[in-house]
Simulated scan of single mutants.
Amino acid sequence: MDESELHKVAPEARRGRGAATNETGRYERETRVAVADGWERDAPAILRTVTREERPRRAITRNSSPDVAFDRSLNPYRGCEHGCIYCFARPSHAWLGLSPGLDFETRLVVRPGIGAVLARELARPSYRPGVLAIGTNTDPYQPVERDARAMRGVLEVLAAHRHPVAIVTRGALIERDLDILSEMAGQGLVQVGVSVTTLDAALARRMEPRAPAPARRLAMIRALSEAGIPVRAMVAPVIPALTDPELEAILAAGAQAGARAASWIMLRLPREVSPLFRDWLDEHYHGRAARVMARLREMHGGQDYRADWGHRMRGEGPYAELIGQRFRLAVKRLGLATGLPALRTDLFRVPPKVGDQLDLF
Rank of each mutant, 00 (worst) to 15 (best):
M1A: 09
L6M: 08
A10G: 03
A10C: 12
E12K: 05
G18V: 07
A20G: 14
T21V: 15
R26L: 06
R29E: 11
R29Q: 09
R32D: 06
A34D: 13
A36K: 14
G38V: 11
A43H: 05
V50E: 15
V50C: 12
T51P: 02
R52Q: 09
R52M: 12
R55N: 13
N63R: 15
S73A: 14
C80Y: 05
H82Q: 14
Y86S: 10
Y86H: 07
C87T: 05
R90D: 13
P91V: 04
G97K: 03
S99W: 04
L102W: 11
T106I: 13
L108C: 13
R111F: 11
I114R: 03
V117S: 01
P129N: 05
G130Q: 11
A133L: 02
I134M: 15
G135Q: 10
D139Y: 04
P140R: 10
Q142S: 10
V144K: 11
R146H: 12
D147A: 13
A148G: 04
R149E: 11
M151P: 02
G153H: 01
L155C: 07
L155E: 06
P164I: 09
L178A: 01
L181V: 01
G186H: 14
V192N: 08
D200C: 05
R206D: 07
A211W: 01
A213K: 15
A215E: 12
R217K: 10
P230L: 12
A241E: 15
P245W: 12
R260V: 00
M266K: 02
V273D: 01
E283T: 15
A290D: 14
A290K: 09
A290N: 00
R291K: 08
M293A: 01
A294S: 07
R295I: 02
L296H: 01
H300R: 11
H300E: 01
D304A: 14
R306H: 02
A307F: 05
H311T: 06
R314V: 10
Y319I: 10
V331C: 04
A342N: 08
D346G: 03
L347Q: 09
D359I: 02
D359T: 15
F361K: 06
